[in-house]
Amino acid sequence: MALEEPGESRFLLTKKHARELELAHKYISAGLLKAGKQLSQFVGREIVVQAPRLDLCPIDQLIEVALGSAVEDAQYSESERIQTGIYLGMEGDIEGHFLLLLDPADAISLVEPLVNELAVPPDIHEDIIQSALGELGNITASGIFNAMADISGLRIGPSCPAVVTDMAGAILETPMLDIAQFAEESIYIDTRMEMDKLAARCTLAIIPRPEGLQRFINALTPRIVGGHK
């Protein structure tokens, strides 16, 4: 197969969209703060979710960047680190993927007090933990999707959640390679979650498919031109 230059027909999100991304970051951060309050009510502990950074990333480097291992001589072993992944699909006007990665012990400690209160039989304890983690993802995703819908006027909703514990790279690959079929880059959001003042690092990837991302960016542009930045 001959090598070609990238096709012009693909929507390329670039640094020229920096102002749109900045605006998106502002709204998504506000959405995450709201989600944190809802999560606090859900699990009965104080949870603060913050998104210090939203940026563009070449699709092939998403895993390294998201896992913070994009350094010289990195052994890529972050990809092998065991993480609990809470996945939801983005549905509606913007299709794509939402993935929250947490240390498995942190994930369990987040929801275990809630599950223990329910006094569930031991044989379904694990299932209830998984279900509670799915709901945790649902609340977080809804906070972000609602913020994105508010700013853009687009319809965005979550699919049912899936919860898996595996190598971080293996979990991240699934949404990543779906996007790699259509795009050369992705946005990702670096996220920190704090529980009862104890910081837990988590990785949150919001990965819209290119056509939805283009709709989203197009919806944001007039707000910037109109001085609503």
Partner: peptide
Amino acid sequence: LAAYGLGSC
């Protein structure tokens, strides 16, 4: 040589 964390790849 090592390919770490292969999922669908």
